[in-house]
Each structure stands twice: as structure tokens, then as C-alpha cells.
């Protein structure tokens, strides 16, 4: 096995590990569109980073976070429905990202790899970054797990019982921005939400507790990375979309599983 394939596999598995539990929260809290918005603004983060010559790892996380905070602010004004607001921000960010990239003096950005991921170009330093951030995300999720479940079930009940809802939901936003920055490498900005929600939705069909679902989603996401890379290697298809297509395939399989049960 060649080095680049091993790196691709390790990178994919690292991202899949954290995409599982976070994807569950995205599904439970109906944040799919929110994830899209952050992903699209990550593209803007890349183009601004290149334009202003700032470290991309910083802008990829900072711009989505700024977007998330702006979103909370606008939502509290309450003059537009949340999905309309998300639609405006999400597509404005995507468009702005594309425009800024086109304005760059010489093309130093591979647009296709940003949009659809470039798993096969992962380097050793990327791997370090992925596993460091993944470890931080897992630690945060583990630390806040009970409170995260609590505010997902009912934020007011949680608040009355003493949970700091603002702190915990801000932490979840930070975690989401971190995971999206990671997942960008694997599947690109356009398919990040798919990597989050499809394994979680698949896991739902075989789970009876939140923890089972989170673990199952992780394992399913890892399996889809292996399947997607195998497909990419054998059929010479792009890696990111191959991973997502594998996830969709497993989801369809899970539909038949439920039918056999009942």
C-alpha cells in the first residue's frame, strides 16, 4: 500500500471518528442547514486567508465561528425565520468565497479540492492536525456529553436544573466549527453535512440510547471512509463523493434492516 493511500485512510478515519457523535447532535437538534452554513463560510475562510495571507487553519475556524455568532445575534432579533436566515448567510458565504477566490492575483487555490475534498493529497502534517483536533473534540464531547444531551432534550428544563445552557451551546458551536474545518479535507465544503448526518441517520435505526447511536454513527462513518477509498482506488472516482455515496448506500441498507425487524 502506498503512503498517500495510508495517509488518506488515517485522515478519513480520524474525521469519521468525530463526525459520528457530532452528526448525531446535528440530526437531533435539526442543525443540518446550520452545518451547511458553517461549511460554506469555511470556504470563505480559505479564500480570505489566502487573500490576506493569514494561516488557513485559523481562518477556516474563525470565519465559521464569526458566522455562527452573527447567526445567533440575528436570530434573537427574530425578524426572519431561521431557515430563511440560514439560507441567506449560507449562500452569501459560498458566493463571497467563490468571488474572493476569483479575485486572487494568481490562482493558488484548487477550487475543486475545496468543494469536494482532496483526501488523497493529505500530508503527514495534516494528519497531525486532524488527530490533535479530533482528540480535543472527543475530550470536549466527553466532558460535556451529559449537558449536551440535556440541552438537546429541553434547554429550559436543563437551565432550571442548573445547566449553563449558553456555555454548553456555545461549546457545541465551537465543536461544530472545528469538525467542519477537519471534514473539509475529506469531503469538501459541499458534502460535509452529508458526512455528518448520513451515518447518524443510519445509526438511528439500530440504536436505543444516545450513546449507542453516537458510537454506531462513528463506526458507520469509518466504514464508509474505507468503502469510499476502496471505490476511489478501484474505479478512479473522486474520494470525497465516493465516501458520501458509500454512506448513502449503507443508509439504504439500514432501511431494509428495519423492515426485517418488524
Amino acid at each position: 500500500m502506498t503512503d498517500f493511500l495510508l495517509y488518506a485512510l488515517l485522515a478519513g478515519l480520524g474525521v469519521a471518528l468525530v463526525a459520528g457523535p457530532l452528526g448525531c447532535f446535528v440530526v437531533w437538534r435539526r442543525m443540518a442547514y446550520f452545518g451547511d452554513t458553517l461549511a460554506h463560510s469555511a470556504l470563505l475562510g480559505v479564500s480570505l486567508g489566502v487573500l490576506l495571507d493569514i494561516n488557513l487553519n485559523i481562518t477556516i475556524i474563525a470565519i465559521p465561528l464569526t458566522m455562527a455568532i452573527g447567526l445567533v445575534f440575528l436570530e434573537q432579533r427574530g425578524f426572519l425565520a431561521l431557515d430563511t436566515l440560514l439560507g441567506i448567510l449560507s449562500h452569501s458565504a459560498l458566493a463571497a468565497g467563490l468571488v474572493v477566490i476569483s479575485l486572487l492575483p494568481d490562482v493558488r487555490v484548487d477550487l475543486l479540492s475545496l468543494l469536494f475534498g482532496d483526501l488523497l493529497a493529505v500530508t503527514k502534517s495534516d494528519l497531525w492536525m486532524i488527530y490533535t483536533v479530533a482528540a480535543a473534540v472527543m475530550a470536549l464531547l466527553g466532558l460535556l456529553w451529559k449537558q449536551l444531551i440535556n440541552i438537546t432534550v429541553d434547554p429550559e428544563l436543563a437551565a432550571v436544573e442548573g445547566t449553563n445552557v449558553t456555555m454548553v451551546s456555545t461549546a457545541l458551536m465551537l465543536i461544530t466549527a472545528l469538525v467542519i474545518a477537519l471534514a473539509m479535507k475529506v469531503v469538501g465544503v459541499l458534502l460535509i453535512t452529508a458526512l455528518l448526518i448520513i451515518p447518524a441517520a443510519t445509526a438511528r435505526r439500530i440504536s436505543h440510547t444516545p450513546e449507542h447511536m453516537a458510537i454506531a454513527a462513528s463506526l458507520i462513518a469509518m466504514l464508509t471512509v474505507v468503502m469510499g477509498l476502496a471505490m476511489s482506488w478501484n474505479l478512479d472516482t473522486p474520494a470525497g463523493p465516493s465516501v458520501v455515496i458509500s454512506a448513502s448506500f449503507l443508509f439504504c441498507l439500514s432501511l431494509t434492516y428495519r423492515r426485517q425487524l418488524s
Binding site: R29, R30, I149, V153, D154, H208, T209, P210, H212
Partner: peptide, 19 residues
Amino acid sequence: VTIDPTLPISTVRFLQLAN
């Protein structure tokens, strides 16, 4: 309390959230 149907949670687990 409206809990999304995608969240698998039993009645007793719901109570345990009260710590």
C-alpha cells in the same frame, strides 16, 4: 417537551438527565 424522534431516549433516561 418536544424531543426529536431521531433521539433514542427512554423514559427513565429522560429522568436521569436531572442528575
